Simulated assay, not measured.
Amino acid sequence: EKWVEKQEKLRRTIKQVLPCDVTLANPFNPLVVPPADCVLSTYCLEVASKDLPTYCSGVRNLGSLVKSGGHLVLVMALGGTYYNVGPEKFSCICLAPEMAKEAVKEAGFDIVRFETLNFNMPMTMASGQTVGFLVAQKHQEA
């Protein structure tokens, strides 16, 4: 029953859902929102990025939404080059763990935790077979 209580609390807490474009310096452009305690990205950056520089820029852009001392949480597909949604095939950057970690560090974060999980995804759904989970804390402003 705890999940029902958490769900109700979350629904009371969320005020608005905003469109987000991680390729923009202000992902919520034209809106300006105050920095958050935590920003979560799930399977977003690797599919929105055509190459490593675009991925690093996306991490910086998302990181700009996190307040000093706050956290960035990324769930990412590692090692894949495509995924399918129904009959549609979409490409993604073939991301290695070290690429993601370095991008997060360069964006001004310390990695608190990084884990991977291997799974058997049918090749008809996606080419990646590993999921990465990363939690990072933004450097404290002096």
Rank of each mutant, 00 (worst) to 15 (best):
W3V: 09
W3A: 06
V4C: 09
E5R: 11
E5D: 09
Q7N: 13
E8I: 06
E8D: 11
E8W: 06
R12F: 02
T13A: 12
I14E: 10
K15I: 13
Q16E: 15
Q16H: 14
Q16M: 13
L18A: 11
D21G: 02
V22F: 02
T23H: 08
T23G: 09
A25G: 07
A25H: 08
A25Y: 06
N26R: 09
F28S: 11
L31D: 09
V33Q: 14
P35E: 15
A36V: 14
A36P: 13
D37E: 13
D37V: 04
C38I: 14
S41H: 05
T42A: 09
T42V: 08
Y43H: 06
C44P: 04
E46W: 02
E46G: 05
E46N: 10
V47R: 12
A48V: 10
S49Q: 07
K50P: 08
D51I: 08
D51W: 08
L52T: 10
P53G: 12
G58L: 09
V59W: 07
V59C: 07
N61H: 15
L62W: 10
G63P: 04
G63Q: 03
S64F: 14
S64M: 15
V66Y: 04
G69Q: 01
H71T: 04
H71C: 05
V73R: 02
V73Q: 01
M76G: 01
A77H: 07
A77E: 13
A77P: 00
L78C: 03
L78G: 02
L78E: 02
L78K: 02
L78P: 01
G79A: 05
G80R: 00
Y82N: 01
Y83H: 10
Y83V: 03
E88H: 12
K89V: 08
F90A: 01
F90P: 00
F90N: 01
A96S: 10
A96H: 11
M99P: 00
A100L: 08
A103L: 03
V104S: 05
V104Q: 04
V104N: 03
K105D: 06
A107H: 09
D110H: 05
V112A: 03
R113D: 11
E115Y: 12
L117A: 15
N118K: 15
F119W: 15
F119P: 02
N120W: 14
N120F: 14
M121I: 10
P122S: 03
P122G: 03
M123S: 14
T124R: 12
T124C: 07
M125P: 00
M125Y: 04
G128P: 02
Q129E: 11
Q129M: 13
Q129W: 02
V131Q: 14
V131L: 15
F133M: 05
F133I: 01
V135H: 04
A136V: 00
K138W: 04
H139M: 02
H139L: 04
H139Y: 06
E141D: 12
